[in-house]
Design a binder for these strands. Structure first.
Lengths: 347, 347
DNA sequence: TTGAAAGCGCTAACAA
DNA sequence: TTGTTAGCGCTTTCAA
């Protein structure tokens, strides 16, 4: 069995209280006692029981995070990087992460409730926001600190970090228009996601902002996966007037789109322009390298965690809502850079 | 403040004990009492305090997992899928995951110790094994259940799941030899990792198993990232006699390798063969699609979790060590399939 | 069928 | 400076 302060108390002949205080390095314990207690604790291999501490202190030093996993081949590089950002920042401050996986929908809110009301976590991180998001509704009515990555419709009176992806998408459209594209398609993420609204909005705004004579935009809905992007692109290319520029709602779908276009014999960056969103590490090494909008996802994870830790400590946030400016990353897939002769392709 | 069984006891006029037993659905409580208690608990919005339950039951219903994160751009799709496998299986059985991020090295063992001796978790999952792995040494001397994904040197007397990646790599080599390759290179993961040993061993075995007259193999060490694979390949291609076939120790490095080769103007699958290992979802949609060895990583996560839950429950494992057979996935990057005319590339 | 009492391992108010 | 006592919210003997 494991060593408790009671054992140390017995061993040292001190009371449990004294041992507790000595280990907490309180200054109403004599130096000699502290030294004795610490030595014995060390010798006996004592580690505090965190569960007991939590119960007493009403603090767990744990941050909750629910991953929106879907099918078995859930593998969004986006999330592993976000997780690393949150996790490393949390670790810095002695916090652990309690991760559950749960698809949106039925049981979802229960997962949150159990975490919060079960007092298992000191705070929560919410990701992948939806237009109407019951999780946020719930949390805002609770007293637990939480920070959100993303926005929702309605009033944004909760702490959040997000990138201005409407602007990001607009930058893409404008860039492509500058490259003389006139027939656009957009591969949209699921409509209930808030990010879809912003990106779709940015797409439409970009098109509307010009006086040019554009073909009507083609919009298809997909699911954020490569496979989805592949299928969506197949159907786009089957149209009577296929688009010359495809803007995918995220990088993974853009990869699928490139794959589908290449399957048709199109040279991406020459015969057709394809862009993504997120700038996951893969994008740089895709073939051709993907033009996309950068999101500093590791940093966002760290920021979200930082804000949450402040809230947990009871500190004020300097800024409750942080919207980051997007950066356009132009690579070969949009054809902006001269396409090298066959056989001498990109970096 | 949140509702406790004490509140319910007061409200119903029953004792705390009775409420506790009613909620646990014990059969020494009258039906009417149960109904009363349950109704009131519902009305008051009671959720058990899991921390208090844990302290009393000496069980947390939490599984620990330490992610070996390195730099900021940690984004291994491999891990997000593994995590999903473990997480979903755990959720099925009412368990959560306590995730810490910690680079191998100095503080690593402390993270494990705090989790285990702090009684925060009922069991642990260990990933990314090293040849000599202090984590396993530590856990094997403890009494906490754990299951490992991967092997180590020395006696394998602990529960584990792994794929026979020596065989997997050998299959790759043999396949490439069948395609008339005679000059091979291997981009090795860090030497301290156990998987490196197996894959390197498989590589050498594959080469040795033939009577053919082969050029001496070129072996470079890298770090499992795309960037690493890119750099390693640059140096390989600078050699006087550059390899005609590059076997990368994982898919990410293979992507980097493809990118580097393409940068040189080489057509992957025609001028040079490149293969990976893992078969992450990306591989299918790479350009060209990557020849690799499949690892059912989601399933492995689920298996590991399943075994761990059995151990936690005190059940016997039918099989302590499970080694999965690898499957070769032949796609275009090795040139096995006839390379289509330029402009009509792969699926 | 129910309740009183003890205790999981720890912290903290209070008294000595 | 130290110890006694109470209690965090829950489960589990044991007795009624």
């Amino acid at each position: 069995m494991s060593v408790t302060i009671k054992d140390i108390a017995q061993q040292t002949g001190k009371s449990i209280t004294t041992v507790s205080r000595a280990l907490a390095d309180k200054d109403d314990v004599s130096l000699s006692t502290k030294e004795l207690v610490r030595r014995v604790a060390d010798e006996m291999g004592y580690t505090p029981n965190r569960v007991a501490q939590s119960l007493q202190k009403r603090r767990t030093d744990i941050i909750g995070l629910v991953l929106p996993t879907f099918g078995p081949r859930f593998s969004d590089p986006f999330f592993s990087e976000f997780l690393a950002g949150v996790g490393n920042k949390a670790a810095e401050h002695g916090y652990d992460l309690l991760v559950s996986t749960q698809a949106p929908g039925d049981g979802e809110l229960d997962v949150y409730r159990r975490k919060v009301q079960g007092r298992r976590v000191d705070g929560l991180v919410v990701v992948r926001t939806r237009r109407i998001d019951p999780r946020i509704e719930y949390l805002r009515n609770s007293t637990i600190p939480f920070v959100v990555f993303g926005r929702t419709e309605g009033e944004l009176d909760f702490p959040l970090v997000d990138e201005d992806s409407a602007l990001g998408t607009r930058l893409l459209v404008e860039h492509l228009m500058g490259l003389r594209h006139r027939r656009f398609a957009f591969i949209a993420p699921p409509p209930e996601l808030m990010l879809t609204q912003f990106r779709l909005h940015g797409f439409c705004e970009g098109l509307a902002s010009t006086g040019l004579d554009l073909d009507p935009p083609q919009i298809v809905t997909s699911d954020l996966t490569q496979r989805g992007g592949y299928r969506a692109t197949e159907s786009l290319l089957n149209n009577a007037k296929p688009p010359t520029a495809i803007i995918a709602g995220n990088d993974l779908m853009a990869f699928g789109a490139m794959s589908a276009a290449q399957h048709r014999g199109l040279v991406v960056g020459k015969d057709i322009a394809i862009t993504g969103f997120d700038d996951i590490p893969m994008s740089e090494h895709a073939h051709p390298p993907l033009t996309t909008v950068h999101q500093p996802i590791y940093k966002i994870g760290a920021m979200v965690c930082d804000m949450l830790l402040k809230l947990i400590r009871g500190d004020e946030l300097k800024q409750q809502q942080i919207i980051l400016q997007p950066t356009l990353v132009v690579r070969r897939s949009c054809g902006a850079q001269p396409y090298p002769a066959s056989g001498d392709i990109e970096s």
